[in-house]
Design a protein around this nucleic acid. Structure first.
Lengths: 135, 135
DNA sequence: CAGCATCCGCTTTGATACTG
DNA sequence: CAGTATCAAAGCGGATGCTG
């Protein structure tokens, strides 16, 4: 995320932006957060619970990065029990749309990929799969 | 890449496929390779040189994963100096198309994001930027 | 409730050297 | 040419404990 360094810049102009996106989205939780927040303003704890596997630390860190990149807005309500809401920015909503295309691709080819993996693994380690017929 | 574990599955059905894609593409070099190979069959060394920052090890590993997922085909030409060519599968080409959308998003909003970052950083560390006016 | 700081470990990556 | 094997370094993520 933070530092791709020189390596990313040697590739064509095609790849650079791709890397940019990826670096911004490749975080283990970034996308989940984006998805969770896509429905509208959401509180810290809400996020924490809807993603669940995430730790507080990661939620905070990722949120910060997202905020830094102008993808989410952070609104603090100075109430007695603190209340902070996060919301996607228009730019992030666009990204979310794009992410949906990827989702679509994943869904359409999920079986293909699973199969490819199975085949590949079966050939490399036939021992663990007695029911297949390599030859 | 290989193991997202339980954490990925607790999120909605929306996010799962996203994670799948991400896990498959989030590798530091996966996308570059996909892009580099999108032009047609390409040899190992060609890839190594066109991506440049990549190490042999990483190129091999990433290529293997891509192959395992059925995203690239590996063709070995049994010639005296070994010749191996990699090519995207139709499925990978589709992914590549989708990646292009992301690229597009990145290009369209690159400035916005850079600005957002600058602003954010300026507010957190005004010291290093004397020319801005925090207040 | 929301968030930060610290420590700690696993995974990923890189450097280097060797082989069919 | 196209890998593979090994080793060490780095980054990322998790657990825990402490605040406003």
């Amino acid at each position: 995320m933070r530092n791709t360094g020189v390596t990313a810049q040697v590739v064509n102009a095609h790849a650079c932006p791709v890397r940019e996106v990826l670096d911004r989205v490749s975080g283990k939780w970034s996308v989940q957060i984006l998805v969770a927040a896509a429905h509208g303003p959401i509180r810290f704890t809400e996020l924490e619970r809807s993603i669940e596997g995430i730790s507080r630390r990661m939620l905070t860190l990722t949120l910060r990065n997202l905020e830094r990149d102008g993808l989410v807005t952070r609104t603090v309500h100075p109430t007695v029990p603190p209340k902070v809401e996060y919301e996607l920015t228009p730019v992030a909503r666009e990204l979310h749309e794009t992410l949906l295309r990827l989702t679509d691709w994943a869904e359409r080819n999920r079986v293909y990929i699973a199969q490819a993996r199975a085949d590949y693994d079966a050939e490399r380690d036939p021992e663990s799969e007695s029911e297949s017929e390599p030859t």
